[in-house]
Design a protein around this nucleic acid. Structure first.
Lengths: 207, 207
DNA sequence: ATCCTTATTGGACGTTCGTACAACAGGTGC
DNA sequence: GCACCTGTTGTACGAACGTCCAATAAGGAT
Protein backbone atom coordinates (compact mmCIF):
# COMPACT_ATOMS: atom_id res chain seq x y z
CA UNK A 1 0.00 0.00 0.00
CA UNK A 2 1.46 3.38 -1.04
CA UNK A 3 2.06 6.22 1.34
CA UNK A 4 -1.25 8.16 1.43
CA UNK A 5 -0.60 10.56 4.30
CA UNK A 6 -1.43 14.00 2.88
CA UNK A 7 1.09 16.78 3.43
CA UNK A 8 0.03 19.60 5.78
CA UNK A 9 -2.56 21.87 4.17
CA UNK A 10 -1.07 24.90 5.90
CA UNK A 11 1.64 25.79 8.37
CA UNK A 12 1.13 27.48 11.67
CA UNK A 13 3.10 30.53 12.59
CA UNK A 14 3.86 32.17 15.84
CA UNK A 15 1.28 34.91 16.36
CA UNK A 16 3.88 37.66 16.26
CA UNK A 17 5.40 36.38 13.04
CA UNK A 18 2.01 36.00 11.37
CA UNK A 19 0.99 39.43 12.50
CA UNK A 20 4.14 40.87 11.03
CA UNK A 21 3.67 39.05 7.73
CA UNK A 22 0.17 40.50 7.46
CA UNK A 23 1.53 43.98 8.09
CA UNK A 24 4.20 43.54 5.44
CA UNK A 25 1.67 42.17 2.97
CA UNK A 26 -0.51 45.19 3.65
CA UNK A 27 2.41 47.49 2.94
CA UNK A 28 3.07 45.75 -0.38
CA UNK A 29 -0.56 46.03 -1.41
CA UNK A 30 -0.67 49.70 -0.48
CA UNK A 31 2.45 50.28 -2.56
CA UNK A 32 1.09 48.39 -5.56
CA UNK A 33 -2.58 49.37 -5.62
CA UNK A 34 -3.02 52.30 -3.30
CA UNK A 35 -5.48 52.60 -0.47
CA UNK A 36 -8.46 51.83 -2.69
CA UNK A 37 -7.10 48.38 -3.45
CA UNK A 38 -6.22 47.44 0.09
CA UNK A 39 -9.11 45.06 0.79
CA UNK A 40 -9.04 42.25 3.31
CA UNK A 41 -9.08 39.64 0.57
CA UNK A 42 -6.30 41.24 -1.48
CA UNK A 43 -4.06 41.54 1.56
CA UNK A 44 -4.80 37.97 2.61
CA UNK A 45 -3.87 36.64 -0.85
CA UNK A 46 -0.68 38.72 -0.74
CA UNK A 47 0.20 37.17 2.61
CA UNK A 48 -0.71 33.69 1.42
CA UNK A 49 -3.43 33.12 4.00
CA UNK A 50 -7.19 33.01 4.03
CA UNK A 51 -9.25 36.17 4.32
CA UNK A 52 -10.73 35.14 7.63
CA UNK A 53 -7.35 35.15 9.31
CA UNK A 54 -7.05 38.89 9.07
CA UNK A 55 -10.02 39.24 11.38
CA UNK A 56 -8.30 36.93 13.82
CA UNK A 57 -5.34 39.25 14.26
CA UNK A 58 -6.91 42.66 13.76
CA UNK A 59 -10.35 43.89 14.79
CA UNK A 60 -10.81 45.25 11.28
CA UNK A 61 -8.97 46.22 8.15
CA UNK A 62 -8.63 49.79 9.43
CA UNK A 63 -6.64 48.54 12.39
CA UNK A 64 -4.35 46.60 10.08
CA UNK A 65 -3.66 49.67 7.98
CA UNK A 66 -3.00 51.70 11.11
CA UNK A 67 -0.59 49.05 12.39
CA UNK A 68 1.11 49.07 9.00
CA UNK A 69 1.61 52.81 9.26
CA UNK A 70 3.12 52.50 12.71
CA UNK A 71 5.41 49.71 11.58
CA UNK A 72 6.49 51.51 8.42
CA UNK A 73 7.10 54.71 10.36
CA UNK A 74 9.29 52.84 12.83
CA UNK A 75 11.29 51.32 9.97
CA UNK A 76 11.88 54.75 8.44
CA UNK A 77 12.85 56.19 11.78
CA UNK A 78 15.30 53.36 12.38
CA UNK A 79 16.85 53.84 8.95
CA UNK A 80 17.31 57.55 9.61
CA UNK A 81 18.91 56.90 12.98
CA UNK A 82 21.18 54.26 11.48
CA UNK A 83 22.35 56.61 8.74
CA UNK A 84 23.03 59.26 11.33
CA UNK A 85 24.94 56.91 13.60
CA UNK A 86 27.07 55.73 10.70
CA UNK A 87 28.11 59.31 9.98
CA UNK A 88 30.10 59.61 13.20
CA UNK A 89 30.19 62.46 15.68
CA UNK A 90 30.80 65.56 13.61
CA UNK A 91 27.55 67.61 13.77
CA UNK A 92 27.53 68.74 10.13
CA UNK A 93 28.21 65.21 8.89
CA UNK A 94 25.40 63.86 11.06
CA UNK A 95 22.99 66.47 9.76
CA UNK A 96 23.84 65.78 6.15
CA UNK A 97 23.55 62.04 6.68
CA UNK A 98 20.15 62.48 8.28
CA UNK A 99 18.85 64.59 5.43
CA UNK A 100 20.23 62.56 2.53
CA UNK A 101 19.24 59.20 4.00
CA UNK A 102 15.82 59.70 2.46
CA UNK A 103 17.35 59.29 -0.99
CA UNK A 104 19.12 56.00 -0.40
CA UNK A 105 17.94 52.51 0.41
CA UNK A 106 15.78 51.56 2.18
CA UNK A 107 13.86 54.84 2.32
CA UNK A 108 14.25 55.81 -1.33
CA UNK A 109 12.25 52.80 -2.46
CA UNK A 110 9.32 53.78 -4.70
CA UNK A 111 7.22 51.16 -2.96
CA UNK A 112 7.78 52.74 0.43
CA UNK A 113 6.94 56.16 -0.91
CA UNK A 114 3.74 54.89 -2.50
CA UNK A 115 2.78 53.30 0.78
CA UNK A 116 3.45 56.58 2.50
CA UNK A 117 1.18 58.45 0.10
CA UNK A 118 -1.58 56.01 0.96
CA UNK A 119 -1.15 57.01 4.60
CA UNK A 120 -1.21 60.69 3.74
CA UNK A 121 -4.50 60.13 1.99
CA UNK A 122 -5.94 58.86 5.27
CA UNK A 123 -4.74 61.64 7.55
CA UNK A 124 -7.79 63.83 6.99
CA UNK A 125 -10.20 60.94 7.23
CA UNK A 126 -8.99 58.95 10.22
CA UNK A 127 -7.98 60.55 13.52
CA UNK A 128 -5.67 57.72 14.60
CA UNK A 129 -3.75 58.09 11.34
CA UNK A 130 -3.55 61.82 11.92
CA UNK A 131 -2.09 61.17 15.37
CA UNK A 132 0.53 58.84 13.93
CA UNK A 133 1.40 61.41 11.30
CA UNK A 134 1.85 64.17 13.86
CA UNK A 135 4.05 61.85 15.87
CA UNK A 136 6.16 60.89 12.86
CA UNK A 137 6.43 64.45 11.56
CA UNK A 138 7.16 65.85 14.99
CA UNK A 139 9.85 63.25 15.56
CA UNK A 140 11.54 64.01 12.28
CA UNK A 141 11.36 67.74 12.83
CA UNK A 142 12.53 67.43 16.42
CA UNK A 143 15.61 65.43 15.47
CA UNK A 144 16.32 67.92 12.74
CA UNK A 145 16.09 70.85 15.14
CA UNK A 146 18.50 69.14 17.51
CA UNK A 147 20.96 68.50 14.70
CA UNK A 148 20.67 72.08 13.50
CA UNK A 149 21.30 73.36 17.01
CA UNK A 150 24.39 71.16 17.25
CA UNK A 151 25.59 72.78 14.05
CA UNK A 152 25.37 76.19 15.67
CA UNK A 153 22.17 77.48 14.13
CA UNK A 154 20.60 80.24 16.27
CA UNK A 155 17.58 79.11 18.28
CA UNK A 156 15.35 81.66 16.61
CA UNK A 157 15.85 79.98 13.26
CA UNK A 158 15.53 76.37 14.37
CA UNK A 159 11.83 75.88 13.81
CA UNK A 160 11.56 77.56 10.42
CA UNK A 161 14.70 75.91 9.09
CA UNK A 162 13.61 72.47 10.26
CA UNK A 163 10.23 72.93 8.60
CA UNK A 164 11.84 74.08 5.37
CA UNK A 165 14.25 71.15 5.23
CA UNK A 166 11.50 68.68 6.07
CA UNK A 167 9.34 70.11 3.32
CA UNK A 168 12.21 69.93 0.87
CA UNK A 169 12.94 66.31 1.71
CA UNK A 170 9.27 65.35 1.52
CA UNK A 171 8.85 67.12 -1.79
CA UNK A 172 11.90 65.51 -3.36
CA UNK A 173 10.87 62.15 -1.97
CA UNK A 174 7.43 62.64 -3.43
CA UNK A 175 8.66 63.54 -6.87
CA UNK A 176 11.06 60.63 -6.81
CA UNK A 177 8.09 58.36 -6.25
CA UNK A 178 5.73 59.92 -8.74
CA UNK A 179 8.16 60.36 -11.63
CA UNK A 180 11.28 58.26 -11.04
CA UNK A 181 12.10 58.64 -14.73
CA UNK A 182 12.34 62.40 -14.37
CA UNK A 183 14.33 62.59 -11.17
CA UNK A 184 16.97 60.10 -10.10
CA UNK A 185 17.75 59.31 -6.48
CA UNK A 186 21.32 60.55 -6.68
CA UNK A 187 20.25 63.84 -8.23
CA UNK A 188 17.64 64.29 -5.52
CA UNK A 189 20.31 63.65 -2.91
CA UNK A 190 22.64 66.17 -4.54
CA UNK A 191 19.89 68.78 -4.64
CA UNK A 192 19.05 68.14 -1.01
CA UNK A 193 22.71 68.48 0.00
CA UNK A 194 23.09 71.78 -1.81
CA UNK A 195 19.80 73.14 -0.48
CA UNK A 196 20.77 72.08 3.02
CA UNK A 197 23.98 74.07 2.79
CA UNK A 198 22.14 77.14 1.56
CA UNK A 199 19.33 76.92 4.10
CA UNK A 200 21.77 76.66 6.99
CA UNK A 201 24.08 79.40 5.76
CA UNK A 202 24.83 82.16 8.23
CA UNK A 203 22.04 84.58 7.47
CA UNK A 204 22.88 87.98 6.03
CA UNK A 205 20.53 90.65 7.32
CA UNK A 206 17.23 90.70 5.44
CA UNK A 207 16.86 93.23 2.65
CA UNK B 1 -60.73 72.52 -6.98
CA UNK B 2 -57.23 73.32 -5.69
CA UNK B 3 -54.17 73.61 -7.88
CA UNK B 4 -52.77 70.09 -8.11
CA UNK B 5 -50.05 70.53 -10.73
CA UNK B 6 -46.92 69.04 -9.20
CA UNK B 7 -43.73 71.13 -9.29
CA UNK B 8 -40.94 69.84 -11.54
CA UNK B 9 -39.31 66.76 -10.06
CA UNK B 10 -35.92 67.85 -11.37
CA UNK B 11 -34.38 70.52 -13.52
CA UNK B 12 -32.45 69.99 -16.69
CA UNK B 13 -29.04 71.51 -17.15
CA UNK B 14 -26.95 72.27 -20.14
CA UNK B 15 -24.63 69.32 -20.66
CA UNK B 16 -21.52 71.42 -20.05
CA UNK B 17 -22.89 72.85 -16.83
CA UNK B 18 -23.97 69.47 -15.52
CA UNK B 19 -20.64 67.97 -16.44
CA UNK B 20 -18.86 70.70 -14.54
CA UNK B 21 -21.08 70.29 -11.48
CA UNK B 22 -20.22 66.58 -11.43
CA UNK B 23 -16.52 67.39 -11.60
CA UNK B 24 -16.81 69.86 -8.76
CA UNK B 25 -18.82 67.40 -6.69
CA UNK B 26 -16.12 64.81 -7.32
CA UNK B 27 -13.47 67.22 -6.11
CA UNK B 28 -15.43 67.90 -2.92
CA UNK B 29 -15.84 64.20 -2.23
CA UNK B 30 -12.14 63.56 -2.83
CA UNK B 31 -11.31 66.35 -0.41
CA UNK B 32 -13.69 65.08 2.26
CA UNK B 33 -13.32 61.30 2.05
CA UNK B 34 -10.26 60.57 -0.06
CA UNK B 35 -10.08 58.32 -3.07
CA UNK B 36 -11.55 55.34 -1.24
CA UNK B 37 -14.79 57.23 -0.63
CA UNK B 38 -15.20 58.53 -4.16
CA UNK B 39 -17.93 56.16 -5.33
CA UNK B 40 -20.43 56.90 -8.06
CA UNK B 41 -23.27 57.09 -5.58
CA UNK B 42 -21.47 59.39 -3.14
CA UNK B 43 -20.50 61.78 -5.91
CA UNK B 44 -24.03 61.73 -7.32
CA UNK B 45 -25.53 62.59 -3.94
CA UNK B 46 -22.97 65.39 -3.54
CA UNK B 47 -24.00 66.79 -6.92
CA UNK B 48 -27.69 66.38 -6.13
CA UNK B 49 -28.42 64.02 -9.00
CA UNK B 50 -29.12 60.34 -9.38
CA UNK B 51 -26.32 57.81 -9.58
CA UNK B 52 -27.21 56.79 -13.09
CA UNK B 53 -26.51 60.24 -14.45
CA UNK B 54 -22.80 59.89 -13.87
CA UNK B 55 -22.69 57.10 -16.43
CA UNK B 56 -24.45 59.38 -18.86
CA UNK B 57 -21.64 61.93 -18.80
CA UNK B 58 -18.60 59.75 -18.18
CA UNK B 59 -17.85 56.26 -19.43
CA UNK B 60 -16.92 55.29 -15.87
CA UNK B 61 -16.00 56.68 -12.51
CA UNK B 62 -12.31 56.53 -13.43
CA UNK B 63 -12.91 58.94 -16.29
CA UNK B 64 -14.69 61.32 -13.93
CA UNK B 65 -11.77 61.30 -11.52
CA UNK B 66 -9.35 61.89 -14.39
CA UNK B 67 -11.44 64.80 -15.65
CA UNK B 68 -11.50 66.18 -12.11
CA UNK B 69 -7.71 66.06 -11.98
CA UNK B 70 -7.41 67.88 -15.30
CA UNK B 71 -9.92 70.51 -14.19
CA UNK B 72 -8.31 71.00 -10.79
CA UNK B 73 -4.87 71.23 -12.36
CA UNK B 74 -6.09 73.90 -14.75
CA UNK B 75 -7.55 75.86 -11.86
CA UNK B 76 -4.27 75.76 -9.97
CA UNK B 77 -2.34 76.75 -13.04
CA UNK B 78 -4.67 79.67 -13.65
CA UNK B 79 -4.33 80.82 -10.05
CA UNK B 80 -0.55 80.71 -10.31
CA UNK B 81 -0.55 82.68 -13.53
CA UNK B 82 -2.96 85.22 -12.07
CA UNK B 83 -0.76 85.74 -9.02
CA UNK B 84 2.23 86.19 -11.28
CA UNK B 85 0.47 88.65 -13.55
CA UNK B 86 -0.67 90.67 -10.57
CA UNK B 87 2.93 91.04 -9.41
CA UNK B 88 3.88 93.24 -12.35
CA UNK B 89 6.97 93.08 -14.53
CA UNK B 90 9.89 92.97 -12.13
CA UNK B 91 11.38 89.44 -12.41
CA UNK B 92 12.10 88.93 -8.72
CA UNK B 93 8.61 90.07 -7.76
CA UNK B 94 7.08 87.72 -10.31
CA UNK B 95 9.13 84.80 -9.03
CA UNK B 96 8.19 85.45 -5.44
CA UNK B 97 4.52 85.83 -6.34
CA UNK B 98 4.61 82.56 -8.24
CA UNK B 99 6.17 80.68 -5.34
CA UNK B 100 4.07 82.12 -2.53
CA UNK B 101 0.79 81.84 -4.40
CA UNK B 102 0.57 78.26 -3.18
CA UNK B 103 0.05 79.52 0.34
CA UNK B 104 -2.83 81.88 -0.34
CA UNK B 105 -6.37 81.39 -1.58
CA UNK B 106 -7.46 79.56 -3.63
CA UNK B 107 -4.53 77.15 -3.67
CA UNK B 108 -3.88 77.06 0.05
CA UNK B 109 -7.29 75.51 0.72
CA UNK B 110 -7.00 72.28 2.73
CA UNK B 111 -9.73 70.79 0.56
CA UNK B 112 -7.73 71.37 -2.60
CA UNK B 113 -4.63 69.86 -1.04
CA UNK B 114 -6.58 66.81 0.07
CA UNK B 115 -7.92 66.42 -3.43
CA UNK B 116 -4.41 66.66 -4.76
CA UNK B 117 -3.20 63.92 -2.44
CA UNK B 118 -5.94 61.69 -3.80
CA UNK B 119 -4.52 62.27 -7.28
CA UNK B 120 -1.00 61.50 -6.10
CA UNK B 121 -2.28 58.21 -4.76
CA UNK B 122 -3.40 57.31 -8.27
CA UNK B 123 -0.23 58.20 -10.16
CA UNK B 124 1.37 54.81 -9.73
CA UNK B 125 -1.83 52.92 -10.46
CA UNK B 126 -3.28 54.70 -13.48
CA UNK B 127 -1.18 55.73 -16.50
CA UNK B 128 -3.49 58.55 -17.59
CA UNK B 129 -3.16 60.09 -14.13
CA UNK B 130 0.60 59.71 -14.35
CA UNK B 131 0.56 61.55 -17.68
CA UNK B 132 -1.47 64.38 -16.19
CA UNK B 133 0.92 64.59 -13.27
CA UNK B 134 3.97 64.78 -15.50
CA UNK B 135 2.26 67.52 -17.49
CA UNK B 136 1.33 69.48 -14.37
CA UNK B 137 4.71 69.06 -12.73
CA UNK B 138 6.58 69.82 -15.93
CA UNK B 139 4.50 72.94 -16.46
CA UNK B 140 5.17 74.18 -12.96
CA UNK B 141 8.87 73.44 -13.18
CA UNK B 142 9.12 74.98 -16.65
CA UNK B 143 7.56 78.24 -15.58
CA UNK B 144 9.82 78.27 -12.56
CA UNK B 145 12.91 77.76 -14.70
CA UNK B 146 11.89 80.64 -16.95
CA UNK B 147 11.32 82.90 -13.97
CA UNK B 148 14.66 81.92 -12.49
CA UNK B 149 16.39 82.64 -15.79
CA UNK B 150 14.74 86.05 -15.89
CA UNK B 151 16.19 86.70 -12.46
CA UNK B 152 19.67 86.04 -13.79
CA UNK B 153 20.27 82.55 -12.46
CA UNK B 154 22.96 80.74 -14.49
CA UNK B 155 21.60 78.15 -16.91
CA UNK B 156 23.57 75.38 -15.25
CA UNK B 157 21.64 75.87 -12.01
CA UNK B 158 18.16 76.25 -13.49
CA UNK B 159 17.05 72.66 -13.36
CA UNK B 160 18.29 71.81 -9.88
CA UNK B 161 17.02 75.06 -8.39
CA UNK B 162 13.59 74.66 -9.95
CA UNK B 163 13.34 71.11 -8.63
CA UNK B 164 14.38 72.22 -5.16
CA UNK B 165 11.87 75.04 -5.05
CA UNK B 166 9.10 72.85 -6.38
CA UNK B 167 9.87 70.24 -3.75
CA UNK B 168 9.89 72.87 -1.04
CA UNK B 169 6.53 74.26 -2.12
CA UNK B 170 4.99 70.80 -2.40
CA UNK B 171 6.32 69.79 0.99
CA UNK B 172 5.04 72.91 2.72
CA UNK B 173 1.74 72.61 0.91
CA UNK B 174 1.52 69.02 2.05
CA UNK B 175 2.23 69.75 5.67
CA UNK B 176 -0.25 72.59 5.60
CA UNK B 177 -2.88 70.09 4.52
CA UNK B 178 -1.98 67.31 6.90
CA UNK B 179 -1.47 69.37 10.05
CA UNK B 180 -2.98 72.83 9.61
CA UNK B 181 -2.87 73.25 13.39
CA UNK B 182 0.91 72.87 13.39
CA UNK B 183 1.75 75.08 10.44
CA UNK B 184 -0.20 78.18 9.42
CA UNK B 185 -0.46 79.40 5.85
CA UNK B 186 1.29 82.68 6.54
CA UNK B 187 4.18 80.95 8.28
CA UNK B 188 4.51 78.55 5.35
CA UNK B 189 4.58 81.52 2.98
CA UNK B 190 7.26 83.25 5.07
CA UNK B 191 9.37 80.10 5.13
CA UNK B 192 9.00 79.72 1.38
CA UNK B 193 10.00 83.33 0.80
CA UNK B 194 13.10 83.01 2.93
CA UNK B 195 14.08 79.68 1.40
CA UNK B 196 13.57 81.11 -2.07
CA UNK B 197 15.99 83.91 -1.33
CA UNK B 198 18.58 81.48 -0.01
CA UNK B 199 18.19 78.99 -2.84
CA UNK B 200 18.62 81.68 -5.49
CA UNK B 201 21.55 83.38 -3.77
CA UNK B 202 24.65 83.83 -5.92
CA UNK B 203 26.48 80.60 -5.30
CA UNK B 204 29.82 80.68 -3.51
CA UNK B 205 32.18 78.03 -4.85
CA UNK B 206 31.49 74.59 -3.42
CA UNK B 207 33.58 73.55 -0.43
C1' DA C 1 -0.17 7.25 20.38
C1' DT C 2 -3.60 10.36 22.16
C1' DC C 3 -5.25 14.71 23.79
C1' DC C 4 -5.58 19.74 23.81
C1' DT C 5 -4.90 24.17 22.39
C1' DT C 6 -5.70 27.41 19.00
C1' DA C 7 -4.08 28.95 14.44
C1' DT C 8 -6.39 28.57 10.28
C1' DT C 9 -9.82 27.71 6.91
C1' DG C 10 -13.96 28.32 4.20
C1' DG C 11 -18.40 29.82 3.70
C1' DA C 12 -22.50 32.74 5.02
C1' DC C 13 -24.37 37.18 5.79
C1' DG C 14 -25.87 41.88 4.52
C1' DT C 15 -23.97 46.01 2.30
C1' DT C 16 -22.00 48.65 -1.26
C1' DC C 17 -19.71 48.76 -5.36
C1' DG C 18 -19.78 49.92 -10.93
C1' DT C 19 -22.45 49.46 -14.82
C1' DA C 20 -26.35 48.99 -17.92
C1' DC C 21 -30.92 50.05 -19.42
C1' DA C 22 -35.95 50.76 -19.82
C1' DA C 23 -39.16 54.15 -18.45
C1' DC C 24 -40.19 58.84 -17.31
C1' DA C 25 -40.49 63.85 -17.92
C1' DG C 26 -38.56 68.72 -18.65
C1' DG C 27 -38.07 71.92 -22.19
C1' DT C 28 -38.20 73.49 -26.91
C1' DG C 29 -40.04 73.88 -31.57
C1' DC C 30 -43.96 73.59 -34.05
C1' DG D 1 -51.73 72.07 -27.42
C1' DC D 2 -49.02 68.49 -29.41
C1' DA D 3 -44.76 65.98 -30.53
C1' DC D 4 -40.15 65.28 -30.47
C1' DC D 5 -35.67 65.14 -28.21
C1' DT D 6 -32.87 63.85 -24.62
C1' DG D 7 -31.57 64.81 -19.85
C1' DT D 8 -32.78 62.26 -15.85
C1' DT D 9 -34.51 58.82 -12.80
C1' DG D 10 -34.98 54.33 -10.70
C1' DT D 11 -34.06 49.73 -10.74
C1' DA D 12 -31.72 45.49 -11.59
C1' DC D 13 -27.67 42.78 -11.94
C1' DG D 14 -23.23 40.41 -10.71
C1' DA D 15 -18.99 41.22 -8.28
C1' DA D 16 -16.51 42.57 -4.37
C1' DC D 17 -16.67 44.48 -0.03
C1' DG D 18 -16.10 43.81 5.65
C1' DT D 19 -17.38 40.97 9.19
C1' DC D 20 -18.63 36.93 11.69
C1' DC D 21 -18.34 32.01 13.13
C1' DA D 22 -18.55 26.93 13.15
C1' DA D 23 -15.58 23.36 11.60
C1' DT D 24 -10.98 21.72 10.78
C1' DA D 25 -6.34 20.40 11.59
C1' DA D 26 -1.37 21.54 12.88
C1' DG D 27 1.86 20.89 16.35
C1' DG D 28 3.38 20.65 21.04
C1' DA D 29 2.37 18.39 25.52
C1' DT D 30 1.59 14.19 27.98
Amino acid sequence: MPQVTTPPAYRRSEPDARRLSLIEACARVLAREGIAGASVRTIAVEAGVSAGLVGHYFPGVDALVTATYAHTGARVDAALKAAMAKAGDEPNARLEAFVTASFAAPIASPELLATWIAFWSLVRVRPEIAALHDEQYGGFKGQLERLLADCGLPDAQLRATAIAITALVDGLWLELCLSPHELAADEAAAIARDALARLTWKAPATG
